[in-house]
Amino acid sequence: MLTIKNLTVAYDDTPVFSDVAVNFNAGKITGIIGPNGAGKSTLIKAMMNLIKRESGEIAYNGQSIKSVQKKIAYVEQRKELDLTFPIDVFDLVLTGTYGKLGLFKSPSKREKLASKEALEQVSLSSFSKRQIGNLSGGQLQRVFVARAIVQQAEIIVLDEPFVGIDLQSETAIMKILKQWRDENKTIIVIHHDLNKVSNYFDDLVILNHGIVDYGPTQQVYNPQNMEKAFSADLSAVLFSKQEGVQA
């Protein structure tokens, strides 16, 4: 179990949230939802030591997160990357092996085989020599999921993986997430399409500058919490079983 206690993060002295406490369970796909600017990305970045925290303890099965850094795979938002970089699909997936290799070691046959297999799992073998800028959004997202596969991580964190991608890719990625769940990994997904919340996530963390609620999706995904995190109007629309809305 991944536990966060007393987490406070501030940008320029303005706290994004303070004293956040939340748990992520192994063998579950946990969704993080909340309005724009609620601190979703900030929460996971602070958790992974990517940004400074004012306070907070983060532990994975009782060990400090720093000592288990190599057990985390992070699939960041695609827009944060330079898609003109001279790297092809296969070499990108291969960078997933770098963490375990450590300094001074180059990827050998074993690492290359793992990358090849990961590309097969996301059905992109025929694209392995393609420069990454020449892929669709969905294909690129699958490439990053393939990189997470070769990392053999225990905790996998994905930031808005389904934004702007085709349905085929979304289904393919969801299949991988379910495989990871069956392997008892901890999967954390920042998500914004509220329609699919009940289908996709076992657990849910509802965020709005602090934790609104968290727990099994069936319990916490309710009109009261949605009203607190988003608005009464949105909540009414979501739970009247009409055509969905996106927050």
């Binding site: 985390i72 944060e80 960078t95």
Partner: peptide, 13 residues
């Protein structure tokens, strides 16, 4: 290579 292409990822590992 990895820090030039994707520094955030390099930090996570």
């Amino acid at each position: 290579l990895v820090t030039s292409f994707d520094e955030t990822y390099a930090k996570t590992y």
